[in-house]
Design a protein around this nucleic acid. Sequence first.
DNA 1: GCGGTAAACGGACCGTGGTCCGAATACTTT
DNA 2: AAAGTATTCGGACCACGGTCCGTTTACCGC
Lengths: 224, 224
Amino acid sequence: MTPTAPPDDEQGHSGQTAEQATEQAAGQPLLPLAGQTPPMRADAARNRTRLLEAAARLVAERGPEHLTMEAVAAAASVGKGTVFRRFGDRGGLLMALLDHSERLYQESFLTGPPPLGPGAPPVRRLEEFGIATLRHLAAHRALLLAAEPEACRRFEPPPRRLVLTHLTALLREADVGGDAELLAHTLASHLDVALLHHLTRRRGMPLDRLEAGWLDLVARVTRT
Amino acid sequence: MTPTAPPDDEQGHSGQTAEQATEQAAGQPLLPLAGQTPPMRADAARNRTRLLEAAARLVAERGPEHLTMEAVAAAASVGKGTVFRRFGDRGGLLMALLDHSERLYQESFLTGPPPLGPGAPPVRRLEEFGIATLRHLAAHRALLLAAEPEACRRFEPPPRRLVLTHLTALLREADVGGDAELLAHTLASHLDVALLHHLTRRRGMPLDRLEAGWLDLVARVTRT
DNA sequence: GCGGTAAACGGACCGTGGTCCGAATACTTT
DNA sequence: AAAGTATTCGGACCACGGTCCGTTTACCGC
C-alpha cells in the first residue's frame, strides 16, 4: 500500500453508540468514525457522485458480479485512477453502494426501538437481531456477496466487527456462561451472506427455515 | 468453461464409505470418486509430478500466498497452459498439494479407530472430530487459506461437503432435535480455516481456547 | 485578479489468473 | 515400421485489479 492517506471510502457508517465495545483488539476503529474528514474538493465530490451513479446503473444492468472498475470509470467519464483513489478497491466501491441501507440496518439495532433496539431483554434482542440480519442479507445478497473480501480478511470489515461486538454484548448481558466471544462467532456465522446464498440459492432452502434455525440456535446456545 | 473434460485435479480423495449421504443435492459427486480415470499419457504424468514438485518448492520458499501459476510453470519448465489443464485453476493446484494429508485426515474419521472413527457414541465422535479438524486446519493453515475459493463457492469444494455430511450424520445419530442440516453448518463454521486464522493470528487466541470452545459448543447444541 | 500549493486527475503500465488454438507427440492399429 | 488419431503441449493473448507519476486544477492568501 502507498503511504498516502487511506481512501475515505464514504463519509463513514454513522457514529459509535454506547454498546460497550468488548475488546477492539486490532488497530482500526470499529466503525469508520464519521468525524469530520477535511472537506472534499469540489471536483472530487462531483466525481464521487458521478461514479456512484454510474456504478449503481451498471450494477442494475449487469449485476454486481460483472462490475468492472474500468467500466465504472468509463461510464462516469473519469480516469481509472480516480475510482481507486476514491474507493480504495473494488470492495470499497461495492460497500459504498450499500452504505445507505447498511446505515439504516445498523441504526435499527443500535438505537432503534425495542425489541430490536435497546430496552428489550437480551435474548429477545438476539432473536430479533438474527431475523433482521437475515432479511438484510437476503435483500442485498448479490451486492454483499460481490463485496465479500478474500478469505483471510473475512472478519476485518467494520460491519462484520460490529455484528460481532453486538452479539458479544448481548450474550454477556444475557449472562450465558461460556466463551462469549467464541459463541458470538458461532452465532455470527449463521448470519453470513455466503451461507445464506448457498442454502437459499444452491440448495433451495426457504428463508423461513433459516429464520427458524436461528431461533433454535439462539435457544440452544443461551440455554443455561 | 470449455467443453473439454474437467481437469482431473488429483487422483481423487479416497472412496466413499457407508456414512449415510444426507442429501447430495447439487450435481457433482461428494468426493471426486477415485474410479479409474482413463490412464494418463506418459508425458502428462511426468509433467504432473514436475509441476507438483516445483509448486511444493516454491510454496516452501515463498509461502503459498505468493505462488503464481506462471512461476510454477517456469520452475517446472512447462507451458502455462499445461498447469491449468492439469489442475484447473490456482485452487486446484493448491488442493493437489494438500491431497495426501487431506486423505489421511478423511480416513481418520471415516474408517479409523474410535473414538474418532466409527464405533464410539456420536457425541463423543463429534467432540473428537472437532479437535482433530482444528488441528488439521492449524497444521495446514497457510495452504488451506490460500486455496479457499471465492465467497460464493465457499461450500462447494468436496472436502467441505464431506465435513458437512459427516456432521449431519453424527447429529442425526445422536438424535438431537432440530434441523440437523443447519446445525451441522453451525458446527462446521467453527471448524473454518479463515476463522481459525483470524482468531489465532490476528487476535492471538491460543488453539486450546478454540478447542475448549468446540467442546462447549457441542455440549450446547446436543443438549436435548 | 494573481500566483503558489496541495489535492485530484487520468491513463499508461504492470502482474496475474485464465483461455485458445496451431503444433508436437505419445499411444494404437495395421 | 508407418500411418492415424486423440491427447497434450506451450506460449501468445485477453481481462481485470491495482499502481505510478507527470499534468491539471481547485482553493487560499494577497
